[in-house]
Design a protein around this nucleic acid. Structure first.
Lengths: 345, 345
DNA sequence: TTGAAAGCGCTAACAT
DNA sequence: ATGTTAGCGCTTTCAA
């Protein structure tokens, strides 16, 4: 079949171990033999069998990323894709392959990652976000299996992770609206069991409190928000006797639902409602009007996650450190918030 | 370290091969020993080492998917994500893992897939689309390595592939506009080196010719189309003395660019221009107005691709057949095309 | 600097 | 129905 290290050895007139040494750039190998062996490898079209290598080295040179179940967070798909691109790009640079896995529900997710971990098919894992109590985190934590969390775990604050400072990001977004003169600011959140929703909500609260602005519960909408519910929520919100003039929305996709609802109700953006969103996905720029959004560097998040994970994997167990990386965010101002209510009064 | 087949054998008082047989449900094994061995495996927390298994079985139980470089087709990201979900879900069902790989350019893409193929890390590959001359296709074809193409190869029509009938899809979309009374229909395509762009353009042409409608070159726009260029193209198009009343747009994301351009120019959709798009991504429904789009079953495409690939991989070389699967599409009519120019005259 | 030999964890003839 | 043996392709002591 396929050409092996033995074949190369035979043809080169050396022992298999010598060929192996050439392969791994062993220091004590003569330049002459090295050159010759390489020549023959080239000539015979030799490529090392990674499985055999893995078996003996007890390392797979690959990591996996666990894709959360789609159902309730489908709007994150684009975010995930950019994240994955970052992960894959960095991993390739470090000579690692990326396995991608998912499950239809939490139990299946654990099952999938268990298969990979138990079967020793990967050296580490990337978790793409965190619910408040994530069984995958528990599983990995218990096994002491190397993993990095893109996001934050409330239960395990001292875990290797890469994250946005979502509190600060939301704070900044709110400040932007406040500085434009908005005094009535609402918030549209995501699923309340996701840490990111909670953090962004807290940043929003903090900014409003600090500015002595009213924090009204009926200006806060939580949960799934794509189609009908978005329309209804908007309808409710805008029909209040006192309605907000500005709004923070947890994700660009959700913003689409919001904008659609507002359009159907005949409201204009940003004149009737100014919007600032999060994630700055490609769609934010293409929306009408283009959406102001906090860029959280999705690609960078993935890239850094892969980097820290691989670094950890390659560090001896005892010396590993559960660092927490924060990736800088920045607000991209576009038309959806380019309006000052002050001049309008 | 980790518990092996030998440890289990010893504790169970049987030979390693017996344990192996239990593992693979060998028929000639007594129910008693099977039960006992399984018990001990459970008790000791045994999990087979997939690398060792791979080494001897010469099969990895994994496939890879090659993610095209992002630059010029970034608008396909959402489509890819749904595709990947389909692939991953099906592969998991068949007991396969999915490796994901990419490159910054065509050369790197080939390099990445070569690494996986040469290193015998995967049993098959999924290619997520096809340029007119795809070096990855050439590479795989030459090696006789099992792969499935999501899309169509002009050079190699007899390749294992899963695809939409894009000609028919575009034909149907055009017919929809024609049946509403549109007689001046334009087309906004994607990168002209992608087979999908070509096919959809041809379906568009066919429908117009068949209906004896004018096929005007200045109603056809090709190429990158996201931000500024979209605005400019729209501006040009709508300023023609005779401008189209309906338009086919090659992808929902591109449609966003188009809609934004039209909005800025003060045109209304669908009254001034009716639009039908392709892919029916989650965003189509969230747009204002919601976009009529041809659903091509992205998830299903991925699912089927994975299925046929794995089927092929598990079929002896000689009996493999380069079948071509066509996944059904269907037009989802939404507001962006809900307008008949006839009543308006 | 190189070779010989043992073994990573598993499977698959070939025996019994 | 089960055990014995010989590898899969590679790395890594230990010797030379």
């Amino acid at each position: 079949m396929s050409v092996t290290i033995k074949d190369v050895a035979k043809k080169a007139g050396v022992s298999p171990s010598t060929v192996s040494r050439v392969l791994s750039n062993h220091p004590r190998i003569s330049a002459a033999t090295s050159r010759k062996v390489r020549e023959i490898m080239e000539e015979m079209g030799y490529h090392p069998n990674m499985m055999a290598k893995s078996l003996v080295s007890k390392t797979t040179k690959s990591i996996c990323v666990i894709l959360p179940k789609p159902a309730e967070e489908l709007f994150l798909n684009l975010f995930f894709m950019e994240l994955i691109r970052g992960i894959v790009a960095q991993a390739a640079r470090s000579g690692y392959d990326v396995l991608i896995s998912s499950g239809a529900n939490e139990a299946e997710e654990v099952e999938a990652v268990a298969r990979l971990v138990n079967g020793r098919r990967v050296d580490g894992a990337v978790l793409l976000y965190s619910r408040k109590d994530d069984p995958v985190v528990e599983f990995l934590q218990e096994r002491e299996f190397p993993f990095v969390l893109v996001g934050r775990s409330e239960r395990h604050p001292d875990i290797l992770s890469v994250d946005t400072d979502n509190v600060q990001a939301a704070y900044d977004a709110a400040r932007h609206l406040i500085s434009l003169g908005h005094e009535r600011i609402g918030f549209v959140g995501g699923p309340p069991n996701m840490v990111v929703s909670i953090d962004r909500m807290n940043g929003y609260r903090k900014a409003l409190e600090e500015a002595n602005l009213p924090l009204r519960q009926d200006w806060i909408v939580e949960g799934e928000f794509l189609q009908d519910s978005g329309y209804q929520a908007m309808s409710l919100l805008m029909n209040l006797p006192e309605r907000p003039s500005g709004m923070l929305v947890v994700d660009d996709f959700v913003t689409f639902g919001v904008i659609r609802g507002l359009n159907e109700l005949g409201y204009r953006i940003p004149q009737d409602l100014s919007i600032v969103s999060f994630n700055n996905l490609a769609v934010a720029e293409l929306s009408s009007p283009p959406i102001s959004s906090v860029d959280i560097g999705s690609y960078q998040l993935g890239y850094t996650a892969s980097q820290t994970l691989i670094h950890t994997v390659e560090t001896p167990r005892g010396e590993r450190m559960p660092v927490r990386h924060i990736i800088a965010h920045r607000l991209i101002v576009r038309e959806s918030s380019l309006f000052s209510p002050i001049n309008n009064i």
